[in-house]
Amino acid sequence: MMRLTCCLAALTAALPALSLASEDIADQYPGSPLYSKPVEVIPYVWSAIGATAPPTYENTGHNNNLSFIVTGDGVVVVNGGAAYILAKALHDEIRQVTDQPVKLVIDENGQGHAMLGNSYWAEQGVPILAHEDAAHEFEEYGAQILAGMERYNRDKSEGTYLQGPTQTFSDSYTVDFGDFPIEVRYLGPAHSPGDISVWLPEQSLVIAGDMAFHERMLPIFEDTITADWLETWDSAFEPLGATYVIPGHGHPTNMDQVRRYTKGYLEYLRGQIRAHIDAGGDLAEAYYVDQSPYANLDTFEELATKNAGRVYEQMEWE
């Protein structure tokens, strides 16, 4: 208990500094394909924090968080990684932490940085779990996702092939080994099809996946229904009452931060678009509604106008 308290206190003290992520920060772990070396967020829960920039050759596509939990009876990995090379690099780091075998990989959604590294884990004979909607997404778009990774990663894409999950679930999945409960939950529609969160109730920690953002601007895809995301947040994510949050992108933080930059941003942008529509504004003008309160977020320049246009297209018919 003393170790847990000290570790959590250190994380809390670091939170103001952790909010200073930037796309301009150079690779933090030059000796590894990983963008940064895994850190122990709380006892037994580790995460290799990815870049808050788009995927590039320089960051090897490691622009999301690759986490793992040392359960006492094996290791649970959260996210397969964006390429074979990243999954192998993460496994090398796990072996430095523990001699417990990896017993399960959980993909947080059907995107490339969650699933393309499955090719490595399948070779190790490790079961791979994902939500059924994420599995369908990867099956439908996997070839396109792989081709995109091969373009930016070039030689670093070697060994990567399409490998979907070996197990799927619809609502929840409980890990049945280890010293403490681990619950894999589909909370409802959010950022992309099949988004899941990994909840550790005894530690009050959630590996939120793309349910929650705070250092980089969240992207709104064509199939991201923002009204549904907000409903899922209020009905299922917020009630977890998590003390600590490992988001899909960016450093570990707390609910106040992700609430401000995820729920707060979605509500703000929808409010701006609603006012624009009510004033008779069209799509061409909607791209430029004021989003300046969130201009400090990484990827703002890449995503703000796209997000506004997609929310307009949704809300025009609400």
Rank of each mutant, 00 (worst) to 15 (best):
243 T>D: 13
97 V>Q: 14
230 L>P: 04
187 L>G: 02
178 G>I: 00
194 G>Y: 04
131 H>K: 03
75 V>A: 09
184 V>N: 06
312 Y>G: 08
66 L>M: 15
229 W>N: 04
92 D>E: 15
316 E>Q: 11
308 A>L: 00
9 A>R: 12
135 A>E: 09
265 Y>E: 13
229 W>A: 12
90 L>K: 01
56 T>K: 07
272 Q>C: 03
89 A>G: 09
151 R>D: 15
220 I>D: 13
197 S>A: 15
40 E>A: 03
227 A>Q: 12
291 Q>D: 15
78 V>R: 09
166 T>C: 08
95 R>D: 11
137 E>R: 13
248 G>D: 10
55 P>Q: 12
117 G>V: 03
142 G>E: 08
136 H>A: 15
68 F>W: 00
228 D>Y: 08
278 D>W: 00
208 A>M: 05
278 D>F: 02
22 S>C: 07
232 T>W: 10
84 Y>I: 00
72 G>S: 05
206 V>P: 02
72 G>H: 07
273 I>M: 01
202 E>C: 04
89 A>F: 06
189 P>M: 10
162 L>K: 03
24 D>Y: 12
82 A>V: 06
151 R>L: 15
275 A>W: 07
248 G>L: 10
108 E>P: 03
44 Y>A: 11
232 T>C: 08
138 F>C: 07
38 P>R: 06
70 V>I: 10
57 Y>Q: 15
63 N>E: 07
38 P>C: 13
262 T>Y: 05
273 I>Y: 01
16 P>K: 09
262 T>R: 02
132 E>F: 05
148 G>K: 08
123 E>M: 10
193 P>I: 10
141 Y>W: 11
109 N>D: 14
281 G>A: 06
14 A>N: 09
110 G>V: 11
242 A>L: 09
56 T>A: 11
101 P>A: 06
160 T>V: 04
122 A>M: 11
124 Q>R: 15
163 Q>H: 10
151 R>W: 13
207 I>C: 01
309 G>E: 07
158 E>F: 07
30 P>Q: 08
305 T>Y: 06
70 V>D: 11
246 I>E: 06
65 N>P: 06
53 A>S: 15
293 P>K: 12
45 V>N: 00
271 G>I: 06
135 A>C: 09
80 G>T: 07
200 L>W: 00
283 L>F: 05
11 L>C: 11
3 R>M: 13
280 G>T: 03
178 G>N: 01
71 T>S: 02
275 A>H: 14
272 Q>N: 01
5 T>F: 13
261 Y>K: 07
67 S>D: 04
245 V>C: 12
11 L>D: 14
264 G>E: 03
254 N>F: 08
31 G>M: 03
46 W>F: 08
288 Y>L: 07
8 L>G: 14
272 Q>E: 13
256 D>Y: 07
114 A>W: 04
265 Y>Q: 14
127 P>C: 09
96 Q>D: 13
158 E>S: 14
171 D>M: 01
48 A>F: 08
229 W>R: 01
113 H>F: 15
116 L>P: 10
258 V>E: 08
262 T>V: 02
124 Q>A: 10
91 H>N: 15
258 V>T: 12
117 G>R: 03
32 S>Q: 09
5 T>E: 14
225 I>V: 12
126 V>G: 08
292 S>R: 04
225 I>F: 14
170 S>V: 14
83 A>W: 06
232 T>V: 04
90 L>Y: 01
89 A>T: 04
298 D>T: 14
61 G>R: 05
